[in-house]
């Protein structure tokens, strides 16, 4: 059994975007803060810290979750992926990212990393979703800039819905 007292910092290690990393943290450290401020992965954004907006969505063992509702301790030893993992090593955007650019699916870009991480998970399980299913998954995110039209257009193109 892993057990840590409240004011005790312990070393939390996990695999972030394929690299094993570790840092010290109290048990209450949120995964969103741990990724951003302890591990330096600032691509994951914090928008509401109560699980509604979806900006902080990352993948743990391939599953998209809210990192603001997850303790760093819960990700210990797990495989965590963030938006920084998506582009190729030369910075080449993947299909989904390219579709977002083409269809102007982002403006300020603050919500975008979470949306990309949600759909990277969802599309890996459902490569040929309906428009309705895309909409349902997207409804787990708030975007204030776009009105969602560009995002839907990008998603539809990425999955081959014309």
């Amino acid at each position: 059994m892993r057990r840590v007292n409240k004011d005790e910092k312990s070393r939390i290690s996990l695999t972030l975007n394929g690299r094993k990393m570790a840092a010290e943290a109290e048990p209450r450290m949120l995964l969103s803060d741990f990724l951003r401020h302890s591990l330096g992965a600032t691509g994951t954004h914090v928008g509401c810290e109560h699980g509604v907006c979806g900006c902080c969505t990352v993948q743990i063992d391939g599953t998209a979750v809210r990192s603001c509702l997850t303790l760093a301790m819960q990700a210990e030893g797990r495989d965590v992926k963030t938006v920084e993992s998506l582009a190729g090593p030369n910075g080449r955007l993947n299909t989904l990212q390219q579709a977002f650019q083409k269809h102007h699916a982002l403006q300020c870009g603050f919500c975008t990393p979470g949306i990309l991480m949600s759909f990277t998970d969802f599309l890996s399980r459902n490569p040929k979703p309906t428009e309705e299913e895309l909409r349902e998954v997207l409804s787990g995110h708030i975007c204030r800039c776009t009105g969602y039209a560009g995002i839907m257009a990008a998603l539809k193109e990425a999955v081959g819905i014309s």
């Binding site: 938006v83 998506l86 582009a87 990212q97 977002f100 650019q101 982002l106 870009g109 990393p113």
Partner: peptide
């Protein structure tokens, strides 16, 4: 866009 889409 490329930077914003890549967490940069």
């Amino acid at each position: 866009d490329p930077a914003l889409l890549s967490g940069r």
